[in-house]
């Protein structure tokens, strides 16, 4: 049962709006019939997708987290995909949305870093520069009506300053001490804000890890497009570290007590 009246009578588009959570004015209006539709190459829609990315500021820099799932619609298609990617020496980007678009972004950022390196001018790109560059690319692509279908977090630490910002397929950007994309904006962001806001310069790495685990666990319980395998990245004065895949512990004993949804006999 779809409980959102605005979706009634409209074909569901799982890849675009998997949870029916888009703001009302932006719900896809799939029922328009264009006589020439088959003759026009439509932009695209995301195919293989990643879900939430989370990030927070803490004492030593930035911590970012994302699970390892790449979904194909509702199919858990690839379960060992890395969605956190280092760029240069000071930056990590994390991606939700279309995975192939993300791989294309990785490719051109790699070329950018090489290009900058070969100039040997004593400058290298920090997180602010990479975020600005990415924003311009994302905005340019949306302006050609051919977007890169992603929500990206850019985190970094350079010259003693931490940096954390967002950019998405529309070229929308913003910055805050905690960020979460996709379903994480609904489920994890409230937790992150409660735990982090005002404590950015005090939180230790261990505390930050604990907060991230809580959020990843909540997402795994309630986001059907997530899995319990995830990675953590830290960007500090020591540079970029991206952990090996980790497993989040869960407890399902409460499910025994639930009555009324399944096919119980009693």
């Amino acid at each position: 049962m779809d409980h959102f009246p605005t979706n009634w009578g409209r074909p569901r588009n799982d890849a675009y709006d998997a949870y029916g959570t888009f703001p009302l004015p932006h719900r896809p209006n799939n029922d328009t019939k264009d006589a020439f539709a088959s003759g026009v190459q439509r932009t695209q829609q995301p195919i293989v997708t990643g879900t939430s990315v989370l990030a927070l500021k803490y004492k030593d820099g930035i911590m970012m987290a994302a699970d390892n799932l790449a979904s194909y619609g509702s199919l858990a298609r690839f379960k060992d995909v890395q969605r956190l990617h280092p760029v240069g020496k000071y930056t990590v980007i994390g991606a939700g949305g279309d995975i192939s678009d993300f791989q294309y972004i990785q490719k051109f950022l790699e070329e950018l870093i090489i290009e900058e390196f070969t100039s040997q001018d004593g400058h290298d790109l920090g997180p602010a520069e990479i975020h600005e560059y990415l924003s311009q690319v994302m905005y340019a692509r949306r302006s050609k009506l051919n977007p890169l279908w992603n929500s990206l977090l850019v985190g970094g630490f350079k010259d003693g300053k931490s940096f954390l910002a967002y950019v998405d397929l529309l070229g929308t950007t913003y910055s805050a001490s905690t960020l979460a994309t996709g379903f994480g904006a609904y489920l994890a962001q409230p937790i992150l804000r409660k735990e982090v806001e005002g404590k950015e310069t005090e939180l230790t790495e261990d505390e930050a890890i604990r907060i991230m685990e809580t959020c990843i666990r909540v997402l795994y319980y309630r986001d059907a497009r997530s899995i319990d395998k995830y990675q953590l990245a830290t960007i500090t004065a020591d540079g970029v570290k991206i952990s090996d895949s980790r497993h989040i512990s869960t407890s399902w004993s409460f499910a025994e007590g639930i009555r009324g949804y399944g096919a119980q006999t009693q």
């Binding site: 209006n29 799939n30 539709a37 302006s143 009506l145 529309l170 929308t172």
Partner: peptide, 12 residues
């Protein structure tokens, strides 16, 4: 095939 046009705008 079900399709939708990409909407390049939003309100902030």
């Amino acid at each position: 095939p079900q399709q939708h046009a990409f909407n390049p705008y939003t309100e902030n």
